[in-house]
Structures are given as structure tokens and as C-alpha cells.
């Protein structure tokens, strides 16, 4: 057929010899992680270029290798009478204690707010009053009321984590599908069973999201918390270094906080994926 001189378009032939279109996953395609790596690498390169060219003095921005060297130095030698791991440990302890307290208080209270409108009417003004306040604004009050000990530092971080956990839990609980609840009632669920087997699991994805957001808020108050007569902690380390213009320690502290916060966030995301795999599916 294709040999016929009148055939202008040799369709059968071209079909026979057509190479199948390669499935998309055969070819290498950049993933989200590759783009993230590219972004970080560019940032590092820019940092290095800016400092190596002498455009920015080390006092304002130390070169990456200086920060790295400082990292090695602080691992064992320490800054302000504590090594970097000791500072990190002190901060992590405060963070985790505050997180634990916020989860223990915030989730049950959020459930109560989500289930009982009266509780929401009563507590909403309180939460919305303190939530937008900068922690530094009420820090003096906390010091006056609770002193300069460990409790005040943890309390400050706790308050920052509490609001997002509370709000997300209350919202998650209140927005569990009405039909799903009705169906469970007609299968014989008591009010307690409804809460335990339908409402709580249904709100879990949002609760975990609330914890993730809360943890971010917690990190952002760490430095404020460690203004309170601390002798250890990443926030304390950064402030002390800032007073003496030891910029490389400041940058190092920032990077460590960012890395640790990111690692915790990744852990929580993985937990969310494991505990609530249906989240983000359309059912």
C-alpha cells in the first residue's frame, strides 16, 4: 500500500515504525526536592560570592566557611560557657516541654470548644485577645508573675504554641461532616462513641496541622523566652553574640534553629502522613 506511487501520506507505514511515546516517568523529571536543593545551593553560592568578593564585610555577614569553622569550634569549645550541643539541648528541652503542655491542654480544650458552642462563646474572646500580642509585650508580666526561672521561659513558648493547637482542634472538631455523624448515630453510637470514633479521628488531620503551625510559632518566641535570665539556649547564645557583634555565632545560631525546626516539621509531616493517610484524598 505504501509502495503505491499515489500514496502521499504513508499512514500504515508510519504507524508500523512509529516509536511509542515514552511514558513520562521514564525520562528524568526534576522533583520538588531537586528544586529545593537548587534553591538552597543558589542561596549558599550567593552568600559565598557576596562575602568572597569583599562586597560585604565579615562583621555584617561572615563567609560560609567562617561559620562552618565556628561550628567546629563550638561543638567542643563552646560559647558563653556552654557548647553548641548544650545550647541546643537547653532550647530543645524548653520547646518540647512547651509543646507537650500545649498538646495536653490545647487538644482537650479545643475539643470542648468545638463541641459546645457555649464554651466557644466564652473562650473565643480570651484566645483572640492574647493571640495577636507579640510575646515581648507580655514578657514583663510573665516575669513579674512567675519569676525568672525555667517556668517562665516554657510558659512563653507554651502560649505561642497553644493558640494554633486550640484553634485548629476546635475547628477540626466542629467541621466533621454532619452526615457522617448522623450515620454513626443511626448505627447506634452514643455521644461518647461519636466523639471517640467519629469526631476525633475526623479532626485529627487538622489537629496535627495545628501542632505543626504551633511549633513554628513556638520557635519564633524562643529568643524572646531566652531573654529571661537564661544561661543556656540557642536564643541566649544568639543574643549574647549579638551584643559583642560576634556575627558568625549569630548566623550559626540562626542556621541551627532553622535546621532543627525543619527536621521537627518533617517529622510531623511524616507522622501526619502515617496517621491520616486519607487526608488530602478526596474522601
Amino acid at each position: 500500500m505504501s509502495t503505491s506511487p499515489t500514496t502521499l501520506i504513508a499512514v500504515p507505514d508510519s504507524l508500523d515504525t512509529a516509536t511509542p511515546v515514552a511514558p513520562a516517568d521514564r525520562r528524568w523529571q526534576p522533583q520538588a526536592a531537586h528544586w529545593a536543593a537548587l534553591s538552597i545551593a543558589s542561596l549558599l553560592l550567593l552568600w559565598w560570592a557576596l562575602t568572597a568578593s569583599g562586597l560585604i564585610a565579615p562583621l555584617f555577614l561572615p563567609p560560609p566557611q567562617a561559620v562552618l569553622a565556628k561550628f567546629g569550634e563550638l561543638l567542643n569549645g563552646g560559647y558563653m560557657d556552654a557548647t553548641l550541643p548544650q545550647h541546643l539541648l537547653a532550647s530543645l528541652q524548653r520547646m518540647l516541654l512547651a509543646l507537650l503542655a500545649a498538646v495536653v491542654v490545647g487538644i482537650p480544650l479545643g475539643i470542648v470548644i468545638g463541641v459546645f458552642p457555649l464554651a466557644r462563646h466564652l473562650l473565643d474572646p480570651v484566645i483572640e485577645f492574647y493571640r495577636p500580642l507579640p510575646p515581648l509585650a507580655y514578657l514583663p508580666l510573665i516575669v513579674i508573675w512567675f519569676g525568672i526561672g525555667e517556668a517562665s521561659k516554657v510558659l512563653l513558648i507554651f502560649l505561642a504554641i497553644l493558640a494554633p493547637v486550640l484553634i485548629a482542634t476546635a475547628h477540626g472538631v466542629a467541621s466533621v461532616s454532619q452526615l457522617r455523624q448522623q450515620a454513626a448515630l443511626s448505627l447506634g453510637a452514643s455521644r461518647w462513641q461519636l466523639l471517640r470514633h467519629v469526631i476525633l479521628p475526623g479532626a485529627l488531620p487538622e489537629i496535627i496541622t495545628g501542632v505543626r503551625i504551633g511549633l513554628g510559632a513556638g520557635w519564633s518566641t524562643l529568643v524572646a523566652a531566652e531573654l529571661i535570665a537564661a544561661t543556656r539556649g540557642l536564643g541566649f547564645m544568639i543574643q549574647s553574640a549579638a551584643q559583642f557583634l560576634v556575627t558568625d555565632v549569630v548566623v550559626l545560631g540562626i542556621i541551627v534553629i532553622a535546621l532543627v525546626a525543619f527536621a521537627l516539621e518533617l517529622g510531623l509531616r511524616r507522622l501526619q502522613q502515617r496517621l491520616t493517610p486519607w487526608h488530602g484524598q478526596h474522601h
Partner: peptide
Amino acid sequence: QHDALLPW
């Protein structure tokens, strides 16, 4: 109509 099932 829309399943009131429990996805977990």
C-alpha cells in the same frame, strides 16, 4: 449520597 463512611 456522599458516603458518610470512616476513611480511617
